[in-house]
């Protein structure tokens, strides 16, 4: 069965991805179900519109990568629904899920660990086509060269091995592999944080160009708020397994409503020494609580500079609309 090999822009209305009340718990030791669970993702709901870039930010251990993997169904959700192109993924099994994967791909952080060192670059990029039995050998070769060229790689290098490439070029190979099947969604999990600064801009620019050319939708996962602001149309902020705020990129930065978002933003130094001299960082007290036993009420209340009691320690604030296209989970939004 041959399928078309051309890149078809997705023309779809409504959200491309709908995540509804998704939980992902990892059991810890103990055995026989007695152990506590790490609540990596703890009830998360959001949409990704076709053609947009949604930035997902948060600090290490907040569950952002797990959430990306659950959306990709690389790990099953403990509970909740993930819809992609209108179809429920969590109920799919085997071949059905395999077919959907043609339309959603992931790029990983570490371009050294995510490419098989024993395969040539041509084989790595062609592997998804082979897996899905697309095209014959010659068509596949043509497609691989085409995609490599689009990703800024020399198409004559298909016979080389990953170790012959630099970090930035390897990340391009990872992107080419993701792109070869003409996906509509790409989950980019910290795609630039392992790269040299002088190379990061090349990859950011490439991702932007590819999005414009192929109408891609990105879920861009990163801890670096400056990069996220730069690439994203909308930004979602995560803390301890929950989304605390979602708004347009501009709105999140100009008018953050959740105190955690505000703290994160105030923590980033400005490149401009003039602005930097006037920045007043809000320093957080204490450490991030354990996701095994997150605080009651608002999870941020143990470190929040404006927490009020008893409400913040008892009642969990729902993620609600606070302004047009701006949701936040806080009892006192915008008060910090």
């Amino acid at each position: 069965m041959k399928q078309q090999l051309e890149i078809v822009p997705s023309e779809r209305v409504g959200p491309l991805v709908s995540v509804t009340d998704v939980y992902k718990y990892f059991p810890t030791g103990g055995g026989f179900g007695r152990g506590a669970a790490v609540k990596a993702v703890d009830g998360v709901t959001f949409d990704i519109a076709a053609g947009e870039t949604l930035g997902l930010v948060g600090e290490s251990g907040c569950g952002k990568s797990t959430l990306g993997r659950v959306i990709m169904q690389l790990q099953p959700a403990t509970k909740g629904s993930v819809k992609f192109e209108g179809r429920e993924l969590t109920k799919m099994r085997g071949n059905e899920l395999r077919q959907v994967r043609q339309r959603m791909q992931i790029i990983f952080q570490d371009p050294y660990a995510s490419l098989n060192p024993r395969m040539t670059v041509g084989d790595i990029v062609a592997e998804p086509l082979k897996n899905f039995g697309l095209g014959n050998k010659r068509e596949r070769e043509k497609r691989v060269q085409e995609v490599m060229k689009v990703c800024g790689l020399n198409p004559n290098f298909t016979n080389r091995y990953p170790h012959e490439f630099s970090g930035g070029q390897r990340q391009r190979i990872g992107i080419a592999r993701a792109l070869v099947l003409t996906p509509s969604l790409i989950v980019a999990d910290e795609p630039i944080s392992a790269l040299d600064v002088s190379i990061q801009a090349q990859i950011v620019n490439l991702l932007e160009d590819l999005q414009n050319e192929f109408k891609l939708t990105y879920l861009f996962i990163a801890h670096d708020l400056s990069v996220v602001r730069h690439v994203s149309d909308r930004v979602a902020v995560m803390y301890l397994g929950k989304i605390v705020e979602v708004a347009s990129s501009r709105e999140v930065y100009d008018n953050p409503l959740h105190p955690y978002t505000k703290v994160l933003l105030s923590s980033i130094p400005y490149t401009d020494p003039e602005l930097e001299a006037h920045r007043k960082p809000i320093l957080l007290k204490g450490e991030i609580p354990s996701p095994i036993n997150p605080p009651k009420g608002c999870r941020f209340h143990t470190r929040c500079p404006i927490a009020q009691f008893p409400i913040c320690g008892e009642v969990e604030p729902p993620l609600e609309k606070k302004a047009d296209g701006h949701v936040a989970a806080c009892h006192f939004p915008g008060k910090l």
């Binding site: 600064v197 801009a201 400056s226 990069v227 490149t271």
Partner: peptide
């Protein structure tokens, strides 16, 4: 180039990043 190759959290409008071609 280095100063223009990193996104700034204070950027007012979307400017394309300068990418330094090649490798160290």
């Amino acid at each position: 180039s280095l100063l223009r190759s990193v996104p700034r959290v204070d950027e007012r409008r979307h400017e394309r990043l300068i990418s330094i071609q090649g490798m160290p």
